[in-house]
Design a protein around this nucleic acid. Structure first.
Lengths: 236, 236
DNA sequence: AAGTGGTCTAGACCACTTG
DNA sequence: AAGTGGTCTAGACCACTTT
């Protein structure tokens, strides 16, 4: 389990900002010397971080910390696609931004104390020019100090890229629970749906290292022309 | 990529029945001699097959071909759980069994010629004593020669275990697409739901080695008290 | 005690990228 | 040409299971 220790120390380097997103790690022999292990052990630790989508290797160039850019977001976290299988990056519009006391459920899921504050962000996402997703996001205000409607609205990349480069919060995974329900009045208005239309309700808990929850997101999806996809296999 | 070749040859052994589900592989040094590679290369091939849930290693005992038993089915393929996170093996009741011409969609998805036949199997699944899932399964009749309502109904384990031990078809992965819709009349009756209740409609394509599709399954899920869960991370 | 998989090492050689 | 990651080898030593 020596390689586990190496992996842990590499994660510390990433979390602490010693190596920044997009930046290169020292080469394998340097890491082997520093951690006093063989190159094979370094490789095994890096292998896992590559499988976790944390690092990226390029033969002949080096090993880099992956950025949570569009391509990766689409690949790892965006599971809505057209009924014909077409995948497309959604157009995102900020619908509401506020700071408020966490609800008991939010506090419980995000692991906050009772009196904590959260930022609440409502987004409306469009695919093929149609408004099909209504996202309600809640994040710990103490983890994203200084976040404002402006910094959020003016971000250049994905939301998770903003978390990562602006606040040092790297989302590494998420759990989702999906159910069918009749659209509520608020989402019906946003998605321009008749009352009672069946929609998907997706509850996502996004996590950073050590499975620590950092974001709660409820997505309401008009699934008449788009679907939620899930693949159950390891290697593609 | 030598280890890929070793992996391929191990898969041939499994598909051909040279090593049966539950049976042991030769030990690592024997495999290394047979394939004329080093033990490390054998290990890498086996590592991937273990990650794919095809093989299982037990230190001190050996390496075994995994059976598609309940435990594995629950872990890998059954994604419905209670809203409280409780997981339970469903009670399954055979509702209908027939053999018929494949519809164009079935033929396309399963890769059959136009005139092919399929078995159609309707199952009703219960959790916590409540009927919550209606499954409609279609499989290539030419792949499951000799399957009857009796052999199906009298199976001892899971459906996928029957495929594996009875017909040499090992399901190794699946893709699912989920949408919300109003329950149709047939499923409404089976699930005892009022007309128009929102339900999940899950379309699963189960695949064997080389991604070959072997089963098409439509599941209608009453998601009022149960949810579809999906995890987006590599290592647990 | 013998046999199995689990981990780690040390190094050779190759493929690719950069200057 | 020099430096990087990618693959494969050969073997030591450990932990565990079975006999």
């Amino acid at each position: 389990m020596l390689y586990r220790e190496v992996k842990r120390r590499l994660i510390v380097d990433i979390e602490s900002g010693a190596v920044l997103p997009g930046g290169a790690l020292p080469n394998e022999s340097a890491l082997a010397r520093r951690f006093e292990v063989s190159i094979g052990t370094v490789r095994r630790a890096v292998d896992e971080l590559v499988a976790d989508h944390i690092l990226m290797r390029q033969q002949g160039r080096g090993t880099f910390v992956r950025r949570l850019d569009k391509a990766r977001f689409m690949f790892q976290f965006f599971k809505i696609e057209g009924c014909d299988g077409a995948r497309e990056f959604p157009q995102v519009r900020l619908h509401a931004f506020s700071k408020a006391r966490a609800t008991p459920e939010e506090a419980h899921i995000l692991g906050l104390r009772g009196a904590a504050s959260v930022f609440r962000i409502d987004n409306v996402l469009s695919l093929k020019g149609r408004t099909v997703i209504h996202d309600r996001i809640a994040i710990d205000a103490d983890l994203f100090v200084g976040l404002t409607r402006q910094t959020f609205g003016q971000r250049s990349g994905t939301i998770y890229e903003l978390y990562q480069t602006g606040f040092g919060v790297t989302v590494v995974g998420a759990d989702e629970k999906v159910r069918a329900e009749s659209v509520d009045d608020v989402s019906a208005k946003i998605l321009d749906l008749p009352q009672g239309t069946p929609v998907l309700r997706i509850k996502r808990v996004a996590r950073t290292f050590d499975q620590k929850p950092v974001e709660l997101r409820i997505s309401i999806v008009d699934s008449r022309e788009f679907e939620y996809v899930s693949s159950m296999r390891e290697h593609a």
